[in-house]
């Protein structure tokens, strides 16, 4: 019963993280100095109350826990839905009346997002995948990677998945937490669409800036 609330709350944490992450990414336009300082600052945040990288690890733990809870709840609900209409009791013809494409792609879209996050961490955090060359400077990692068209393309696809996931996810989290009230449904949906567009576009600006040579 609390599964859906857990899903909504962890989803909300992840959305807040994404917004912060996107904001940080935009620092790339400040040049190598600014970007690398921001990156280093993330590790020093909270010192001396916290050890070096202390805040970052707290955040990583919270994020990982959120992802795990989110995924666990999602899989449980997915299985419940499958049980609720088991094989042999499916429709021969089924049409949707109003459902959004976003709601349709929630589950497999979520899987795509998870795979992307792993790829993304290996790419820009640990740098184990380093198309265009590895570097100790986060700024250079970004620039090296996104000069290659297919790297940008892979991020475009992944961020589209993220965008759709957010579009339904934000709306659904609000509804699950009891925030949908008479007359408010339309505006909630507009806000969810707007926010997911902002996040998707915000994340896509730096890769395209690199690809188009605006950031070198």
């Amino acid at each position: 019963m609390a599964l859906k609330a857990a899903m909504a709350v962890t989803g909300a944490i992840l959305v807040l993280f994404l917004i912060a992450h996107m904001y940080g990414n935009l620092m790339i336009f400040g040049g190598p100095q600014t970007f690398d300082t921001y990156s280093a600052h993330l590790r020093e945040l909270g010192e001396p109350m916290l050890p070096y990288e202390g805040f970052l690890w707290i955040m990583r733990v919270v994020l990982l826990a959120s992802v795990l809870v989110h995924a666990y709840a999602a899989v449980t609900l997915w299985m419940r839905a499958r049980r609720a209409r088991p094989a042999g009791q499916r429709y021969h013809t089924k049409k949707s009346v109003q459902r959004s494409y976003a709601s349709y792609t929630m589950r497999w879209g979520g899987v795509v997002v998870v795979l992307f996050v792993i790829y993304h961490i290996l790419h820009l955090t640990t740098n184990d995948i380093a198309p265009g060359g590895a570097s100790a400077s986060p700024y250079e990692r970004v620039v090296n990677g996104f000069q290659i068209w297919w790297v940008v393309l892979s991020y475009v696809i992944a961020l589209a998945a993220v965008g759709f996931h957010l579009r339904h996810g934000i709306w659904s989290a609000v509804a699950t937490l009891g925030g949908n009230r008479a007359g408010r449904q339309r505006s909630l949906n507009i806000i969810a669409t707007g926010l997911s567009l902002v996040v998707t576009i915000g994340f896509l600006i730096p890769p395209f800036a690199v690809l188009l040579g605006l950031v070198k």
Binding site: A5, R83, A84, R85, R99, M106, N180, R181
Partner: peptide, 29 residues
Amino acid sequence: DFGGCTNIGECAAVCPKGIPLDTISQLNR
């Protein structure tokens, strides 16, 4: 053995009595 609600809204769209989707949010509250 009903499934869980994921706020897709097909229910309210076919409801012959027009019960609105925000009723579910009321339940959640």
